[in-house]
């Protein structure tokens, strides 16, 4: 049953891709041109909660397949063993499924927090984690407004687990495995084009979607974009997050560092010279032994 369904989604997926003008195999051929951020558009109206994207994700990244089923009112979270999780929310518009994973911010707090550049915003758009650089300080987890990075506390050589938008597939010109598996609710493409596509869907179906795209401006804009038939706070989104970028919050402090490094020593040296008494000078001038 689920296989048939999957095939069905695949055929629709091809139509979906043509709509937004993304050619999966051709995306790498224009590498010389200016690369722009790519992202994923999630249409929560189209998602039926089949969990095939979760299964495909787990399989591709060598993680255990999630066994729990989606239930309204039960919040499933991503974990150190699960990179994405679909949840169901009961709303006046019926049950709505929402996918949770890394948002792939335009200006990611995790990457700004990382002192070894293990968390890294690639020029293609995905935010990736590089194991050989990470020292496991978990400052990315403190900083991420979406609580995305997950740390394997039970391991002696722990990994940070989070969606990397299948970066290794993207650089080969393939689509992220969830998008390829789904095809009905997930669309991969240049962020700019995805926003245009989302706008088009909103304009063409005014009764279906609310006129908002979650991810367009939250946290300074994210790679993941969400279309929804109901207000975003009804389907589990944190609407208290700021719309400007998170790394900008530390900018003032970081910019003050060079001036402190110039001004404070100068000031201290000045005071030191001013407070030098004749007595201390004498002692200094005296021969040591």
């Amino acid at each position: 049953m689920s296989l048939n369904r999957r095939d069905f989604f695949k055929t629709i997926g091809i139509t979906g891709m043509t709509i937004i003008g993304v050619n999966a195999s051709g995306s790498n051929s224009s590498a010389d041109e200016k690369t722009e951020f790519h992202g994923i558009l999630f249409d929560s109206f189209a998602c039926v909660g089949c969990q095939s994207c979760e299964l495909a994700c787990a399989e591709t990244h060598g993680l255990p397949a999630p066994e729990d089923e989606i239930k309204s009112g039960v919040l499933r979270k991503t974990s150190e063993k699960q990179r994405c999780a679909v949840n169901s929310y009961s709303t006046p518009q019926g049950d709505i499924f929402v996918r949770n994973q890394c948002m792939h911010c335009n200006e990611p707090a995790c990457a700004a927090a990382c002192l070894t550049q293990a968390m890294y915003k690639t020029k293609e758009g995905p935010v990736i984690w590089r194991e050989n650089k990470c020292m496991g300080c978990r400052y990315c987890m403190i900083s991420c407004p979406f609580d995305v990075p997950k740390f394997d506390y039970s391991s002696t050589n722990p990994k940070i687990q989070k969606c990397d938008m299948c970066y290794d597939r993207i650089i080969k010109g393939e689509q992220p495995v969830c998008v390829e598996t789904c095809g009905v609710a997930l669309f991969y493409g240049a962020r700019r084009e995805l926003i245009a596509e989302a706008r088009k869907r909103i304009a063409e179906n005014p009764g279906v979607y609310v006129d908002k795209i979650y991810g367009e401006s939250v946290a300074g804009g994210t790679g993941y974009l969400y279309l929804s038939p109901v207000q975003h706070n009804e389907i589990g989104f944190n609407t208290t997050l700021q719309n400007s970028s998170y790394p900008a919050l530390t900018k003032g402090f970081l910019y003050s560092v060079p001036s402190v490094f110039v001004l404070v020593p100068t000031l201290l040296l000045g005071i030191h010279e001013a407070t030098k008494s004749n007595k201390s000078k004498q002692i200094k001038d005296e021969d040591y032994e």
Partner: peptide, 18 residues
């Protein structure tokens, strides 16, 4: 990996923790 931010080309210079 504690020496990564000190040696090598892993300077996360825009990090407060760095």
């Amino acid at each position: 990996n504690i020496f990564n931010p000190i040696i090598g080309n892993n300077f996360g210079a825009n990090s407060v923790l760095f």
